[in-house]
Every structure is written in structure tokens, then in C-alpha cells.
Design a protein around this nucleic acid. Structure first.
Lengths: 354, 354
DNA sequence: TCGAGTTACTGTACCGATACAGAAGAAGAA
DNA sequence: TTCTTCTTCTGTATCGGTACAGTAACTCGA
């Protein structure tokens, strides 16, 4: 005996298949009595409900949206800030009934998730801007929302004010009187080590924007920072070894601006291990306001972003984009920039006297 | 002009629809020359590839598996250990070409993800065992893998040795000479406050198992612990207020066994805020070996579980279950229990003299 | 020169639903 | 009574593919 479908039930009850379909999907289309009868028979036959795949094909919507994650899905998932972002998405998506499908940006042997998985739309997050996966999504004509990506015309995007936040961080150490400033940054790709042209070395949009912000303030103050760039991997380790590189440098910085709080933790450890004090000898500023930033010792001065709000905004933008695509095709997306804010704690102080 | 389908391309090239399908999905079924021609025409017409939904319906596989998460998806995602678990799944799943769809266990207005989303199988994680969502998955006859759930006959399951780990933790403080021991635990549901019958108060399997382990050792040593149980929410806060409750108690404990490291952090803070020292006045043992456990001060004595391995094992088990379901239907699943290990750090010591 | 075995392609029958137009009967208005 | 308007149900045409059993031509050894 084959599988139980609408037809099976229809035959049992003696109605048309369409009526059974309505019993499940459009209760207002038939009498309550008949509906109950149909549901009873369906239950008896072990019918679970309309097959999701068939329904998706016929109705044209899959009920789930994709989240395209950086090449190594793993990296995105081990970061506390990314987690808050994910939680934000989930929170906003749940009431809409949409589920979230994690899409790896790296194509597999025969499967390219961005091309082969049924979704109604997608969030593009923390991806190398020229990842082929993004192209697939675009070609499919799916509603998209870019998050932390270069905003593109016609595509909704959610960003945070990386540039302003970074500028505030730099201005903060300038105001404290620092003259010798270093920048510690990280990325998945690009040039690494002590880099002379950071804008060339950096690939990801947030990193470029933060560099822009830092340099804006430093340039205006006539300060030329040393920039050390490390591959992502373990952020703390990256921060640690970057700092070792820095400290070997002939002119030791009195302030270090970091791309992330995770990086900053490594930086602080390295400074302490070198027998120096934070903030007495060296000031350190992070970025993100990771939940841990307030708890480390010394508590970290950093630039706050609300990753949860970012997630919620992204999900909301996608939900409306999908809704709109059903009626008016080809609407254009709004570009949202969420605020960032400098949070001064204990890891920054005036530079040492001499 | 409608959408571009296999038919459109077939008509343009002058071949059958089936040949076009083969050009995409079974390259070995046609000559390389014709295939190239078809692909070229397809590209020209802006065809992206076989529609995932239609393909799923016809071929009977969706290319994605579900991860059923605790009622509040948000909670699951804010926990570092859950993150490692998720990363483990992703790592193992990626090469198989399967994607991961997050399923909320709470039914929405009209949508029940566990019933309405197209998936090839599912992981059941951190769920109230009688959540209706699990029933839906079972009724659909999907290959399932239970993680941190009561093992059920016929269903593959991955667990960690919660009981043995907890027993080791309890034995550790017993061996140090502690007599007045408290247990701080947490859960999404059940009874809260100072509970007299913990096995009744606890709902989730891991919690019950850990209680079993703690009591096994404590009973044998003739120790009757005080058990405080708090609702999940923010684990640290829970630990903090649970400890306040404890300290107000007439007989202050000299050792506290905690359900998680996150909880333990709150416990330690509360103890310190009460002017006491960890471990001099009170010893604290966590559970999980959260990446932060080693870094907090004092470094936390805890029971290690390898959440990443748990994720990988779960994904692997599901992948094979799906593979097997294609051929032999109704195979039964293996029950895997991963080891746990006591890690002694600085948060435990002999009880104070008097 | 014949039959066996390949290779390259085609035709038909699903996969399991939903959409939408329409039909039959009942209720209500004039 | 007759005409409209609901309400309730039905029929047919998709949705966009894949499976599988052919068929026709081509290769090749004896």
C-alpha cells in the first residue's frame, strides 16, 4: 500500500481531493461538519498533513529563508556577536512562521546550497563579496537582504555605523593624548602582517569601514598608525601574536585600536605577558561590545553595536521584501545603518608620562 | 513570457525535456557536445538550474535537515556550548551537501515548522520531551536523531555521560572533605526554588541524569544536599540569585555543584559579593567546560563535555540514518554516549577548617 | 553479416499538492 | 414566483521536475 495522500482520504470520505485539501489549508471553504469528518478519517489513515514539498511547489513558497554564511560556517558560529545576530534573526522570524536555513557559501562536490536549496529569500552575511554563492542567489531572483556587506543598489541592506564608531574610538585615544597608535585587525582573506596600505589589504566591508573611521581621526591629528593584520582563525590567538609583532617594533605604541573585542582580549593578554600594564602603559580599545567586554579585567573600552537588533532588522527587512515580491515584483530595498556608540571603560587612560 | 523551465530550453535546442534535465543532473547520460550546447542556451535564457522545490518533489529529497530547538530558539542560541554543538553539526554536514534548517518547537499561528517544512530528517535537541513538535516529526516518519534527550527505542540518540560526570564532580568535593554541599540547577520548566524532590522537579533528561550522578556519590557519602532550581533565562543571573537564596539558609554550604558553567559564574559572583572567597570559603564546580571556564578567575573546576564532537556525531548519525532509510526502511538507531571528564582547576579546595 | 552490447536520446507516467473557474443547491429579496 | 446571492463542493490544469522503460543508431568481434 502506497503512501497516504489527499486522494486516499478523498476516496475514503467520498469527496473530491480538492475538498480534502481545503479541509487542511482553507477551513472556511467547507462546512465544519464535513471538515471534522475529513480530519478524522485523515487521522485514522495516519495522514500527517499536506506534504511540505508538494505544497511548496504548488503554492510557490517554501516557508523558509536562507542565511548565507561565510565560507567557513564554523567561524561565523563561534563568534559571540554572530550568535547574538542569529538569535535576533530567529526572534523576529519565528512569529512570521518562516524557518531559517543555514547555507554554506562553499559549494560542495555536486551541491551548491545557494542554488539547490528551496528558500523564499535569503540573508547574506559575513561573506566575501565576490563569493559565487551570492551570484546564485541573485540569479534565482530571490528577495535578498545584505548584512555587513557593501550596500548594493536595489538590494536591501543592514549595516552598522562602523566608520563613525571607529572614528569615535580613535578620537578617544587622541583626546587622551596618545601619539603612537597601532591598529590590530583581522580578516579571512587579503594581505597579512604589518600592512602599509590597509585599504588594499582589507576585503570585508566592515573592516574597510572601520579602517576608514580610524584613519579619518588619526589623519586629522597627524598620527600615522602601525597596522597589523592577521588571519581570522582564533581571534584571541590572532590578537596575541599580532601584539607580539607590535611590541618588537622599535617604537612601541601607547594605544591599540582593535577590530573586535575578541582580538582585544588577545592583545591585552600579550601586553600583560610582556610585563606591561593596561591601561597604564598601553591603552586598548575593542569593537562590538561583546558581552564579555564588560567583565574582563580591565573592563574593555569598546564600540558598541547591537547585534541582536541587527538580526531583528535583517529578518524584518527580508520578511517584508518577500511579502512585497508576491505582489509588486522588483521593488527596491532600503539601506539601513544602525548606530554604534563608544563605551569607555577601564582599558584606556592617558599615555605614560615620558 | 513565463518563467524559464526545462521545457523552454528543450524547445529552443530542439531536444526533449528529459535530455535537458539530464544535462543538469546526469551529465553521463548525453554527449558532452550536446550538453555544452544545452548549458549554453540555458545560460543565455537566464536559467539558473533545476528548481529546488520541483526537484525535491520528484526526487523525494529536500537536501536539508531540521534541527528542532527548544521552545525558545533564542535560549539555545545564546549558550556557548550550544554554539559549539551547532558548529560541530555544520562541520559534519557541509561535505554531505545537506543544509541545516532551524526549526522552532513552538507552533505558530498557522505554521508548525516540524510539520510544514520540507526536510529529509531531523535532529531533536534540548526539547521538552513531550513537545508536540517531536510528535509531528515522528508521524512524518522522518529519520531522527535525539540529542540530549531520553533515548527511545528505534531512534538513534547521542548523549553525553551526564551521570558519570556529575558523579565525578560530587566525588571530587567529597574527597576534598566537604560535608555541606549544595546543588544549583536550572531548567526551562518544572518546579523552582529550593526543591525537596529534585527528580520530580527536573524535566530535561540531562538535568535528571546529572542529579542522579550527584546524588549517587553524595548518598554514598551520607550527605544530603540542598538543591536550588531556577528558571533558565539568563543563566548567570539565575546562578546569582540561587546563591543568594542559599546563603540566607541557616547552614551555609562549603561546596556548590552547578548544572552549568554559566550558572557557576553567577554563583561565584554571588559568593564573592557576599564577602566570601572561592575556593577558600566555598568550592564551586561547574559543568560543560565552557571555553570561558578556564579563563575566569578563579579558573573553574568543571566537567568537560565535547559539544563539538556531540554535534559531529549527531550529524553523522543523521546522515547515515537518511542514507539507510532510502534503501532498507525501518532500520533501528544506535545509542551513543560520549564521555565526560572532570577537570580540576582553581575553584575547588578543602573546606574551611572550622 | 549477424547478433550482442553500448551510447545517446525520447515518451510517458508520476511526485503530491494548490488555483481558479464553475456548478448545484439553499436562502433571501422583490 | 422568480431572480439574485451565498455557501459548499468539484474538475481540470498546472507547479517544474525525475524515473524508468524504451528505441534507434552505432560499434565490434567472429
Amino acid at each position: 500500500m502506497g503512501r497516504v495522500t489527499l486522494k486516499t482520504i478523498a476516496d475514503h470520505v467520498g469527496v473530491s481531493r480538492m475538498t480534502v485539501s481545503n479541509a487542511f489549508s482553507r477551513p472556511d471553504q467547507l462546512s465544519a461538519k464535513l471538515r471534522d469528518q475529513i480530519l478524522a478519517v485523515a487521522d485514522e489513515l495516519g495522514y500527517v498533513g499536506p506534504d511540505p514539498t508538494a505544497r511548496a511547489l504548488a503554492s510557490g513558497s517554501a516557508g523558509t529563508v536562507g542565511l548565507l554564511l561565510s565560507d567557513t560556517l564554523t567561524y561565523a558560529l563561534t563568534d559571540e556577536v554572530a550568535m547574538a545576530f542569529l538569535a535576533g534573526i530567529a526572534k523576529e522570524l519565528t512569529p512570521t512562521g518562516l524557518s531559517l536555513t543555514l547555507l554554506s557559501a562553499t559549494p560542495q562536490e555536486n551541491v551548491v546550497p545557494a542554488r539547490d536549496i528551496a528558500i523564499d529569500g535569503a540573508l547574506v552575511y559575513a561573506c566575501n563579496p565576490d563569493a559565487s554563492a551570492i551570484d546564485w542567489l541573485k540569479r534565482r531572483g530571490l528577495p535578498l537582504v545584505y548584512v555587513d556587506q557593501v550596500p548594493a543598489p536595489g538590494i536591501a541592506s543592514i549595516n552598522i555605523d562602523d566608520r563613525l564608531g571607529a572614528r569615535a574610538a580613535a578620537q578617544h585615544v587622541i583626546d587622551l593624548g596618545h601619539k603612537r597608535v597601532a591598529i590590530v585587525t583581522a580578516g579571512a582573506e587579503g594581505e597579512f602582517g604589518i600592512v602599509t596600505d590597509p585599504q588594499k589589504a582589507a576585503v570585508a566591508y566592515p573592516e574597510r569601514q572601520r579602517l576608514l573611521g580610524w584613519f579619518e581621526a588619526l589623519d586629522a591629528a597627524g598620527i600615522k598608525p602601525t597596522v597589523v593584520r592577521h588571519p581570522h582563525a582564533d581571534a584571541q590567538e590572532a590578537g596575541y601574536s599580532a601584539t607580539q609583532t607590535l611590541l618588537e617594533n622599535h617604537s612601541r605604541p601607547t594605544a591599540v585600536l582593535c577590530f573586535s573585542d575578541a582580538l582585544a582580549r588577545g592583545v591585552i593578554r600579550a601586553i600583560q605577558d610582556a610585563g606591561l600594564d593596561v591601561p597604564k602603559d598601553v591603552s586598548v580599545v575593542g569593537f562590538d561590545d561583546n558581552p564579555l567586554a564588560a567583565r574582563t579585567r580591565p573592563a574593555l573600552t569598546t564600540v558598541r553595536q547591537d547585534a541582536d537588533a541587527k538580526g531583528r532588522a535583517a529578518a524584518a527587512a527580508l520578511a517584508t521584501a518577500i511579502e512585497r515580491a508576491k505582489t509588486r515584483p522588483g521593488g527596491r530595498g532600503r539601506h539601513v545603518v544602525l548606530p554604534t556608540e563608544l563605551v569607555v571603560r577601564e582599558s584606556t587612560a592617558r599615555p605614560p608620562r615620558r
